[in-house]
C-alpha cells in the first residue's frame, strides 16, 4: 500500500509539473501575445518601462535589455532555463549570476524575483493559516449548532449573519475594523504591522489578529453554511441512528459520528481555499498593507512587471496543486472507502 501511495504521489507531482508549465506558458503568452494582437511592437512594450522624457534610443535599449526583440518562444525558453540553470544579469558595472531557481529580475526594480517571493511567503502563509484555523473552528461550531437547532432563532440569526459575512467586501470590513479597533480603540495593531513568527510569536499573532478575523469572517460564513448543510444531511444517516441505538451520549453522536461524516466535503473545499490563499490573499493583504504574495502580484500586474507576475503565478499554481494533492491524500485518511 505505501508503494502505491508513493507511485500515486509521483504521478500527481509529474502532472503538477506539466500543469505549472502550461500555467506559466499561458501567463507568458497573455503578456506578450495579447498586446501583439493589438499591434504592439517590442518598442511599444518597452515604453512601459522608461521615463516619460525617454528618447527612441532609450526605448530601443530597454527593449534590447528586456529581450523583447527575441521571439516570444525564445523569451519563454530563456525564462524557463533560468529556473533550472540560473541566469546572468547585467546590472551595469558588473554581471551577476542569478542561481537556479532564477525566476528572473523585476523589470522595474532590478530585484531578483525568487528571494522576493521567499521573503513574502511567510507573510501570506501566516495570514492564510491563521485565518484558516479561525474560520474552520468558527464555521464548524456555528454550522453544527445551527444544524442541530435547525429553525430556531440561533439558526436564523447565524445564517443571516453568515449571509452578510459572505457578501461583505473585505476592503470595507478591513478598513472599518482597522479604523475602529486599531485607531479608535487601540486594541489591535495598525495596518502593515508584521513580525515574523520566529522572532516573536506573541507579536506575530497580535499584529495579524485583525487580518485573520477579517479574512476568517468571510470564509467562516461560507463554512458555517456548508457545515450546516452537511450536518443536516449526515444527522439523517442510518449510522447516526445506530450510534444512538448503541446508547452513545448525544455529544459523541454529533461529534464523533455526525461531524466526522460531514467533514469530508468541507475538507475538500478547505484544502482548495487554503491553497488559493497561499498564492496571495490579494484583498486582505491590500487592505491591511501586508507585504505578502498577493500584494506582490498586484504590484507586478499594475506595473507590467512580468517576472513578478510569472513568479507569483507559478508559485500560486504550485500551492493549489499541492493543496489538491494533500486533500486527496487526506481524503484517504478521512474516508477509508477511498483507499483501495
Amino acid at each position: 500500500m505505501p508503494a502505491t501511495v508513493i507511485a500515486y504521489i509521483i504521478r500527481r507531482l509529474f502532472a503538477a509539473i506539466v500543469l505549472l508549465f502550461v500555467v506559466s506558458a499561458v501567463t507568458f503568452s497573455i503578456f506578450f501575445v495579447t498586446p501583439k494582437l493589438l499591434g504592439a511592437t517590442p518598442e511599444t512594450l518597452a515604453t512601459r518601462y522608461v521615463g516619460r522624457t525617454s528618447t527612441p534610443d532609450t526605448i530601443r535599449a530597454t527593449a534590447e535589455k528586456l529581450g523583447f526583440y527575441d521571439p516570444v518562444v525564445v523569451q519563454y525558453w530563456n525564462w524557463v532555463k533560468g529556473i533550472f540553470v540560473g541566469a546572468d544579469y547585467d546590472y551595469g558595472p558588473a554581471v551577476e549570476h542569478c542561481p537556479a531557481p532564477c525566476l528572473g529580475y523585476s523589470f522595474r526594480t532590478n530585484q531578483p524575483v525568487w528571494p522576493d517571493l521567499l521573503d513574502r511567503i511567510p507573510v501570506t502563509l501566516s495570514l492564510a493559516v491563521g485565518a484558516a484555523v479561525l474560520w474552520l473552528l468558527a464555521g464548524l461550531a456555528v454550522g453544527t449548532l445551527s444544524a442541530l437547532r435547525k429553525g430556531t432563532i440561533f439558526d436564523r440569526v447565524a445564517m443571516g449573519v453568515s449571509l452578510a459575512g459572505v457578501s461583505l467586501p473585505i476592503f470595507f470590513t478591513g478598513l472599518l475594523s482597522l479604523s475602529v479597533f486599531s485607531y479608535n480603540l487601540g486594541w489591535t495593531a495598525v495596518g502593515g504591522a508584521y513580525t515574523p513568527f520566529l522572532e516573536n510569536p506573541g507579536e506575530w499573532a497580535y499584529n495579524l489578529l485583525l487580518p485573520w478575523i477579517t479574512l476568517a469572517l468571510l470564509f467562516s460564513a461560507q463554512y458555517a453554511r456548508l457545515t450546516r448543510a452537511g450536518m443536516l444531511e449526515t444527522m439523517n444517516e442510518d449510522f447516526i441512528r445506530t450510534a444512538r441505538a448503541k446508547g452513545l451520549p448525544e455529544r459523541t453522536v454529533v461529534v464523533r459520528h455526525g461531524l466526522r461524516g460531514a467533514l469530508t466535503p468541507i475538507l475538500t473545499i478547505f484544502g482548495l481555499d487554503v491553497g488559493l490563499l497561499l498564492g496571495g490573499a490579494i484583498l486582505t493583504e491590500s487592505a491591511f498593507s501586508l507585504q505578502g504574495l498577493g500584494k506582490y502580484a498586484i504590484e507586478g500586474i499594475l506595473n507590467y512587471d512580468l517576472p513578478k507576475v510569472m513568479g507569483v503565478t507559478i508559485l500560486a499554481a504550485f500551492f493549489v496543486v499541492v493543496a489538491n494533492l494533500i486533500v486527496d491524500l487526506l481524503y484517504a485518511v478521512v474516508d477509508p472507502r477511498v483507499r483501495k
Binding site: 522608461v50 521615463g51 522624457t53 525617454s54 532609450t58 551595469g92 558595472p93
Partner: peptide, 27 residues
C-alpha cells in the same frame, strides 16, 4: 545617461550634453 541600466530616469543630460558619438555610459 546609460538608459539600458537606468531606463526610468529623465533624459535631459544625454539630450543636451556634447557627448562623444557612440557613448553608452561609463559601464
Amino acid at each position: 545617461t546609460d538608459k539600458e541600466t537606468f531606463p526610468n530616469g529623465p533624459a535631459y543630460f544625454e539630450g543636451y550634453l556634447n557627448l562623444p558619438e557612440g557613448y553608452q555610459g561609463p559601464y
